[in-house]
Amino acid sequence: MGSDAPGGDLASRMGVELVEASAKRVVGHMPVAGNTQPYGLLHGGASCVLAETLGSIGSALHAGSDRIAVGIEINATHHRSATSGHITGVATPVHLGGTLASWDIEITDEAGRRVCTSRLTCMLRDAG
């Protein structure tokens, strides 16, 4: 990854913090404050940043040090709003192959209610 921050510069600016990271599960959280749209609700794009950060980190760990993981597709279904506190994302692999890695990412609020469900696919390629 191009930044010293595990999730990159954007994730760092948005306050994403890693809690757990392996090629089998990645967990992180992010504050709602500072990541809202004009109505004071968590911005849907912020949920996508959290989802892509977690899935990309897991993909990179799966790929190994000689390859990189590049997101090629993300989708997200927003189930409910969040207006305060933190959201937590848990990324689990759907497929860990030699050229593609796909992840399901469940994002919940502090009460454990699902805020967003996302799926990310990353292409794995040589670092050079």
Rank of each mutant, 00 (worst) to 15 (best):
A21Q: 12
T88W: 06
V19L: 15
T92Y: 01
D9C: 05
I107E: 05
H79R: 08
V90I: 15
T77F: 05
P38V: 15
S12F: 07
I105K: 09
H79V: 07
V90P: 00
C122M: 08
I74S: 09
H43W: 13
S59R: 13
S102F: 04
D9H: 12
N35T: 13
G28P: 03
G40K: 14
T88H: 10
A111M: 08
T117W: 00
S12E: 13
R113I: 02
C48A: 15
Q37C: 11
L18G: 03
E110P: 05
C48L: 14
G128T: 14
V70R: 10
R25C: 11
M123S: 15
P31V: 04
L61E: 13
E52L: 13
A21H: 09
P31Y: 08
V49K: 02
E106P: 00
V49M: 03
L10I: 14
C122Y: 01
A111D: 15
V19I: 15
G71W: 09
G15P: 10
E17F: 01
L61Y: 01
A60V: 05
N35E: 06
A51W: 01
I74T: 14
R119I: 10
G98Y: 02
V90S: 12
G40S: 00
L61H: 06
H29N: 08
A23V: 11
T88C: 01
P38T: 14
G64A: 12
E20R: 12
A76F: 05
S3Y: 12
